[in-house]
């Protein structure tokens, strides 16, 4: 079984979000980067479990600059066999998907995995775009994956329930919570990661179809109005008359 896992780097979940240069750029000052949790905890770990059980390889792929290398090494430390980095700025989803497609189209992967979304861009776009470019089915928001031979059974969230689906290799999925448990890399993994291959590939030329022109922080709350636990009738009255939400 040959699995490709798409990995991106995101600011640590405790990061304070600020912008510089007239609110056009993310302020990286003091920010720690981690592997996007959906890519690491769910996609990568499940991919590793599958090849540990029935053989195969797990390759990670990242569209990014050399500043992504530490998070890529983390994925190798957790257990991926090798990594590919396409040396480009990931500012547009179509550009990213196209780069991954150019690499993946000749590699005959059985399963291509992405996370449900990145926790910085929150696009939830790359998986579906990749599936279309590769002409494969896309199982989005999967929270369970089992494989038998060349057939996979998955569960995923849909409107109003959980759907169980079957699909033959090859296919693309986006992983959401439940697919696997987080793994902490051990010392041996971290040592091994240093010598595992991280292949840097030049990007191919593609249009960027979108760009962010500026950022904005949400308006801060004006302050909390405190109510006595005995005055719940008053709270209901405020919710009805003052803020009109009920």
């Amino acid at each position: 079984m040959k699995i490709l896992v798409c990995i991106s780097k995101v600011p640590d979940t405790t990061s304070k979000i600020n912008f510089v240069d007239n609110n056009t750029k993310f302020d990286e000052n003091g920010v720690q980067y981690i592997v996007n949790p959906y890519d690491e905890w769910y996609a990568l770990v499940r991919a590793l479990e599958l090849v540990e059980a029935s053989g195969g390889t797990v390759t990670t792929i990242t569209v990014g600059t050399s500043s992504d290398d530490p998070t890529i090494r983390k994925a190798l430390a957790i257990g991926a066999n090798d990594a590919v980095r396409i040396d480009g700025e990931p500012t547009d989803s179509f550009f990213v998907a196209k780069q991954i497609f150019e690499y993946a189209k000749n590699e005959n992967f059985d399963i291509v995995m992405t996370g449900k979304e990145t926790i910085n861009y929150n696009g939830a776009q790359i998986g579906g775009m990749l599936a279309e470019l590769l002409d494969m089915p896309f199982v989005s928001l999967a929270n369970k994956l089992d494989v038998s031979g060349t057939q996979a059974t998955l569960e995923r969230d849909v409107q109003g329930g959980i759907e169980v689906v079957e699909v033959d290799f090859p296919f693309v999925l986006s992983a959401s919570k439940g697919m696997a448990e987080q793994r902490i890399p051990n010392m041996r993994g971290i040592m091994a990661a240093r010598t595992k291959p991280l292949n840097v590939v030049a990007p191919t030329d593609h249009n960027k179809l979108t760009s962010v022109v500026k950022f904005e922080l949400p308006a801060p709350k004006t302050g909390c109005k405190y109510l006595d636990p005995e005055s719940m009738d008053e709270l209901v009255e405020l919710l009805h008359n003052e803020t009109k939400v009920i």
């Binding site: 179509f94 579906g128 279309e132 989005s140 995923r156 179809l209």
Partner: peptide, 19 residues
């Protein structure tokens, strides 16, 4: 929604349209 998340990116990639 869940359907939109699986369909929107597919349609956009096919059309080479910004999403």
């Amino acid at each position: 929604d869940q359907t939109g998340k699986s369909i929107g990116p597919r349609v956009a990639a096919k059309l080479e349209a910004g999403h």
